[in-house]
Amino acid sequence: MDFVINALPQYWEGALLTIRLTVLGAALAFVLAVVVGTMGTLRNPIARAVATVYTEVFRGVAAIVLLFWFGYSFVEITGFRLTTDFAAILALGLNVGAYGAEVVRSSINAVPRAQTEAAIALNMSWWRRTSRVIFPQAWAQMLPTFGNLVIELMKATAIVSILGLTDLTKVADDFRASAVADTFTVYTVALVAYFLFAQVLIVLVRLLERRANRRLGRPTDDSLLGLLRPPSIGTTTGGAR
């Protein structure tokens, strides 16, 4: 126990990198998911083709190989050396963004066609229809899956430890290598830390979900406990027809 208390500052040091990679990777993934996912709903065949190629390529490659590629191969073809943490943000952002784009695309397509027609009847432009009517409704549907993806991304940041960056996993691994404590303890601390981060992410996403559902006039469970369990929307997913 003494070890754990004394080692906490070092674990926290590593956790800061894990958090930074998660936040920046998620930000890149989110932007890519929204832009590419929306492109996938357009009638323009070029936009759709670009969206399909991006999605298929980046969800089809292993994030760790992508990381090695940005870390080692990129410099050979371009002459630019990417720092390892930037390479990690790119690799994770592109990879998770591809999954997210599919979520955005299918959520937008799940908004009833009648909503688009009502917006056309008000002579709203494509941009207005999408930003004011369609996206806010699709948003509520995206959030639960986004919650899963951001947790996946957070856990996947552990791959940077292989390239020598000192994240949460690397800190634990270094403690094991230097044999200052038993392996059970050093890894359990890391596991608990990842678990707690995941809980924080879940609560944040649930808060967003609550707000989104309230805006759509759906009943929400506003108890504190409700943040720790999946919301039950029941039969009102259609909202106002």
Binding site: A114, Q115, E117, A118, A119, I120, A121, N123, R132, V133, P136, Q137, R215, L216, G217, G239, A240, R241
Partner: peptide, 17 residues
């Protein structure tokens, strides 16, 4: 052209957001 035309639908189609 279509701004001179308005429509009311069978299923109302109000914006729930």
């Amino acid at each position: 052209r279509r701004k001179t035309i308005g429509m009311v639908f069978q299923q109302f189609n109000l914006f729930p957001n």
